[in-house]
Deep mutational scan, measured.
Amino acid sequence: MEVRTIKVFTTVDNINLHTQVVDMSMTYGQQFGPTYLDGADVTKIKPHNSHEGKTFYVLPNDDTLRVEAFEYYHTTDPSFLGRYMSALNHTKKWKYPQVNGLTSIKWADNNCYLATALLTLQQIELKFNPPALQDAYYRARAGEAANFCALILAYCNKTVGELGDVRETMSYLFQHANLDSCKRVLNVVCKTCGQQQTTLKGVEAVMYMGTLSYEQFKKGVQIPCTCGKQATKYLVQQESPFVMMSAPPAQYELKHGTFTCASEYTGNYQCGHYKHITSKETLYCIDGALLTKSSEYKGPITDVFYKENSYTTTIK
């Protein structure tokens, strides 16, 4: 009895394709271990004539594949690729409408935090270190965002349907971005203890939790000093293409032309909904596939993004 075979390709990165001759009487799992086709788990399936010449994702289970996976995804987590594939199996079914010149995501599976993050990423200057993220990001900007969303979920250790947080998501993504040249110098002034300067680099240099107003941050924000008295913390120097200011959701007025974009969060910790506000020729609110415009805006804002380049204080 002759062994019926077909020729397929296996890959971990969709760049390096490895030619395989597979036995049609055995499952993919018996031949390769966990195997995925377009995100779908085909591990328990036997090869079919229609699979001839198709590319299958496999887990990096030998040295060659491990090197290829690390170079593309910059992670050695053995569960990463499987999590990416199972997320992709959902995100490829989502709709990605162009809204006001940006790629958004039609609401499904509690994905409003991903839509808000995706919209924000198209408006701030950011370059990702893992080629996987950078490639998928370019495709997302062009309207094909399924891979990018699935990668975000995998890097953030999230599953489809789980509630997510924009600030946490951005923080994970910033860790995989090139923020080497970003720098922030802060000064804390206390009447009792004097003053202390701190220099922050990388992710810490672009994120701040405690106030939404970048102007206020430049002037000074009140913080408790270690001595128990009130101290003032203010920005001395900022070198970065953008800054992200966050605070627990509270009524906040966004003035046209003073910011790049913002995240609105309605609801409580267990259950809520994100919308995205962007400042173009007027203010726009993007909620999944829905767009509304207004000249002014007041609502429960939790993150505001500002364009920056270089700032030095005039406070002496």
Rank of each mutant, 00 (worst) to 15 (best):
E239G: 02
C261G: 00
E239D: 12
Y36K: 01
P60L: 04
V236P: 03
C156R: 01
D38C: 09
P97T: 12
L151F: 04
G39D: 10
Y252V: 13
K7H: 15
F80K: 04
P130G: 02
I315C: 12
A250Q: 15
Q98A: 09
K233C: 14
Y84V: 05
H276R: 00
Y274H: 02
T55V: 12
G220I: 01
I277T: 01
E2N: 12
L283T: 07
P300Q: 12
E264A: 12
Q238G: 03
K219A: 12
F9E: 10
V166F: 12
M85Y: 14
Y72E: 07
Y214V: 10
Q238R: 01
Y155F: 00
A69N: 02
A154L: 02
L186V: 15
V21I: 13
T19E: 15
N16F: 06
P60D: 09
P130Y: 01
A69E: 07
H90M: 11
V189A: 10
A140H: 05
Q251R: 10
P34G: 09
K46R: 13
Y252K: 04
E204I: 00
L37Y: 14
D109P: 02
S279E: 02
D63R: 07
P47N: 06
P97Y: 07
L235S: 00
P130K: 03
K106P: 05
T226N: 13
L254I: 02
K218H: 04
T116D: 06
N110Y: 00
G272R: 00
T292V: 09
L200E: 08
Q230L: 14
L283Y: 02
K127V: 11
N49S: 13
Y284V: 14
L126N: 06
G101K: 04
Y252E: 06
A146R: 04
E68P: 06
Q195Y: 10
L179S: 05
A247T: 05
A140E: 07
T64Q: 14
Y155N: 00
S79F: 08
N129R: 15
F80D: 02
T10C: 12
A108F: 05
L179M: 08
P248Q: 12
Y208S: 15
T43A: 13
F56I: 09
T11D: 06
Q197S: 12
V236L: 08
Y265S: 00
A250L: 08
Y297D: 01
H90R: 11
W94L: 06
V160C: 08
F128H: 02
D180L: 06
D135Q: 10
E125C: 07
L200P: 01
T103P: 03
G143H: 05
R83W: 04
L102R: 07
K233D: 02
C190W: 01
Y113L: 02
Q237A: 14
T313R: 13
I301D: 03
E144A: 12
K219T: 12
I315G: 12
C182S: 03
L235Y: 00
A289N: 12
K201D: 07
T55I: 15
N100K: 14
V166Y: 06
E281L: 01
Q31P: 06
G257T: 02
Y265P: 04
E162M: 07
T313S: 14
W107D: 04
F70C: 09
A247H: 08
G29E: 11
I152C: 07
T120K: 04
T266Y: 07
D77G: 06
F217Y: 06
S240Y: 03
G272Q: 02
N309R: 09
A140L: 13
D77A: 07
G220L: 01
L119D: 07
N89Q: 11
P60F: 08
E281Q: 05
Y36E: 04
T75I: 10
D109S: 06
T282C: 07
Y274L: 01
C285L: 11
Y265I: 01
Q122G: 03
P130M: 03
E253C: 07
H176R: 11
K255Y: 07
T258D: 14
C261Y: 00
P130D: 03
K280H: 10
Q31C: 13
V166P: 04
E296Q: 14
R83V: 04
F242E: 02
V67M: 14
A132S: 06
L81K: 04
F174E: 02
Y297E: 00
K191M: 11
S310Y: 14
F242C: 02
G299E: 02
K293Y: 07
T43P: 06
Q134G: 06
A142P: 04
L283S: 00
A115N: 06
T103R: 05
F32D: 05
Y138M: 14
Y274W: 05
E308L: 09
L212P: 01
S171Q: 12
C156W: 01
L133M: 06
E71D: 13
M170W: 04
E52Q: 13
I6L: 14
K307T: 15
V42H: 13
S295A: 14
G272A: 00
D303R: 00
D63I: 05
Y138E: 15
A115H: 02
N110G: 02
L81Q: 07
Y57H: 12
A262T: 00
C156N: 07
M244R: 00
I277A: 01
L212D: 05
K219H: 08
A140S: 07
T11M: 06
K233M: 15
A140N: 02
L179N: 00
G272E: 02
F305T: 04
K201R: 15
F32R: 08
N61L: 14
F70N: 07
T192E: 13
Y57F: 13
Y208W: 09
N187Q: 12
Q195V: 15
C149V: 13
C227Q: 02
T35S: 12
K191Y: 09
V67K: 10
C227D: 01
Y155I: 06
M245W: 00
T278A: 10
P241Y: 00
G220S: 04
T312R: 15
P249L: 02
A115L: 05
K106C: 07
V185T: 09
N147C: 12
Q197T: 15
V185M: 06
I15W: 09
R66W: 09
Y138I: 14
N49Y: 14
L37N: 12
D135W: 08
T314V: 12
D63C: 07
Y284W: 10
D287H: 00
G210V: 00
Q123V: 07
Q196Y: 14
N100R: 09
Y311V: 08
A142K: 15
V304T: 00
Y297A: 00
A154Q: 04
T35V: 10
K191L: 09
V58F: 04
T5H: 11
Q31F: 13
K255P: 07
T266R: 08
F174Q: 02
E71C: 07
K95G: 08
K127P: 11
P47W: 02
A177C: 15
W94H: 04
E2L: 10
K298Q: 08
Y36I: 03
E253I: 08
P131N: 02
G53C: 11
I15M: 11
M26I: 14
L126T: 05
P248M: 15
F32L: 12
S295Y: 10
H273G: 01
K307Q: 08
F259Y: 00
E264C: 07
N111C: 00
M170C: 08
Q20M: 12
L153V: 07
E2Q: 10
M244T: 00
F174G: 03
E308A: 07
L151I: 02
M170T: 03
L200G: 03
E204Q: 15
S86W: 07
T159F: 10
F56V: 09
A108Y: 03
A250N: 11
Q270R: 09
S310P: 05
Q98G: 06
R139T: 11
E264V: 11
S50F: 10
I45P: 06
C225N: 00
K93Y: 11
V12S: 06
H74E: 07
G101Y: 04
L200H: 14
H276T: 06
P130I: 04
F242M: 02
F80Y: 04
W107S: 06
T292R: 10
F128D: 05
L290C: 15
V99Q: 08
A132L: 03
T27F: 15
Y252Q: 09
H51F: 05
A250F: 07
Q134H: 10
D13K: 05
G228T: 05
M26Q: 15
G33P: 07
H74V: 03
N61F: 15
A262G: 00
E68Q: 09
M85E: 03
K233L: 15
L290A: 13
F148D: 04
T198E: 13
T198K: 14
Y234I: 11
M207P: 03
M24G: 13
L151R: 03
I152E: 00
P130F: 03
A87F: 02
C225P: 00
T198R: 13
E125K: 08
K54W: 12
T11A: 06
H51I: 05
T312K: 07
N147L: 04
T64E: 15
F56K: 04
G164D: 01
T64V: 13
K229H: 10
D62G: 09
K218Q: 05
A250E: 12
C227M: 00
E264D: 05
Q134I: 09
D303E: 02
Q197M: 13
A247F: 01
H276F: 10
